[in-house]
């Protein structure tokens, strides 16, 4: 049984990999602002089940998914299927690269390459060439008992290419050391195809690949699927803030590489909860008692539930001797760990 699912996207969304850190990968300030009425547009943030890095979806992107027996798993076979579909639409530059992504080559046209070779195009330049290929589709995989899932994005006509890179640039990046998986950023471009054209080309290639003589029978992707208990449970889990934030691999957030800082801040966060904290003035040493009171207040804190750092720290901030220090701590934490919107989920 092989299943192919094109999934439409209405709301622009950022999708992080299974073992990624939202505070590190995403500018959560944009997520929170965008959800306020009248400010930009709503952006959803989701943690997916497959591995890999962070991607952006919007209405100019089509996400494709193939589920098939894990005994037949290879990382490239369905990326190759997508390249065949793109070439069928006249996109000769498309090929699968060594990271299992699909890129459009930007080199000068050379002698025709073998059209069946999905890993080389007539425009493939040498790796040291300035004409870097541009990424149009990224792959991710999930393997479990008996089943393999391979899905990928495909940038066709996104109006948000600049905005994408803005969203994926977190202010906390210089201060976070994280276990898990960091994204590898690549220059991207649009293919300039309509969603319908791409979807029907992929369906054709899928039919050819699996010898479905009568073509692919399209299954509606709608709320009826939620009548299946397991699907409903998974669907609800994926939408929960707990799944998005508490599944974050352990990380530390520390400002020790910030040149001018009146206060040293060092937090350790496991499963989205602060497990160790140290906040102390850099200039003068406060008494151990004072430091303890502030740090104890932070340990046990669930980061994504903090809506206002001033309120959260409140009385314990008094352990810091200077007003400058107190303001610094509140401002810095508010910027690095902004409040997460509850609405729209």
């Amino acid at each position: 049984m092989h299943q192919l699912t094109p999934i439409p996207h209405q709301v622009p969304s950022i999708i992080i990999g299974r073992n990624q850190n939202p505070w590190l990968e995403v500018d959560l300030n944009l997520i929170s602002q965008a959800s306020k009425p009248g400010v930009l547009q709503q952006i959803d943030l989701v943690r997916r089940r497959s591995g890999g890095g962070t991607v952006f979806h919007d209405e100019g992107n089509v996400n494709w998914t193939v589920i098939y027996p894990s005994a037949d798993f290879t990382r490239d076979k369905h990326a190759e299927m997508i390249v065949r579909a793109l070439r069928g639409c006249g996109v000769e530059r498309a090929r699968v690269n060594e990271r299992h992504d699909i890129v459009l080559d930007q080199g000068d046209r050379k002698a025709d390459s073998d059209p069946k070779d999905t890993h080389t195009s007539p425009y493939t330049a040498s790796s040291d060439s300035a004409a870097r290929p541009l990424k149009v589709s990224g792959s991710a995989y999930k393997l479990t008992r008996g089943r393999a899932l391979h899905h990928g994005t495909c940038l066709l006509s996104s109006p948000n290419l600049k905005f994408i890179s803005q969203c994926l640039h977190s202010p906390a990046r210089p201060y976070i050391k994280a276990r898990g998986v960091e994204s590898v950023s690549s220059p991207v471009t649009n293919i300039a195809l309509s969603n319908e054209h791409f979807i029907s080309a992929v369906q054709d290639q899928f039919s050819k690949m699996y010898d479905h003589d009568r073509g692919v029978e399209a299954m509606p992707f709608n709320d009826e699927l939620l009548e299946v208990t397991e699907i409903k449970r998974g669907y609800e889990e994926l939408q929960s803030l707990e799944w998005t934030y508490l599944q974050t691999p352990q990380f530390t957030l520390a400002n020790s590489n910030e040149v001018s800082r009146p206060v040293n801040i060092d937090l350790t966060v496991r499963h989205g909860v602060v497990t160790d904290a140290s906040i102390a003035p850099t200039a003068s040493d406060p008494s151990l008692q004072e430091r303890t009171s502030l740090n104890e207040n932070l340990v046990g804190l669930t980061l994504h539930k903090v809506t206002n750092w001033q309120d959260e720290l409140s009385d314990s901030l008094k352990a810091l001797p200077s007003e400058e220090g107190r303001r610094f701590v509140v401002d810095w934490l508010s910027k690095m760990l902004p409040s997460i919107p509850r609405s729209g989920k």
Partner: peptide
Amino acid sequence: MSGAFAGRALKHGMDAV
């Protein structure tokens, strides 16, 4: 049904890696 990493998966995986 064989397992999560079974069969040809492994062969191709090795080629790739």
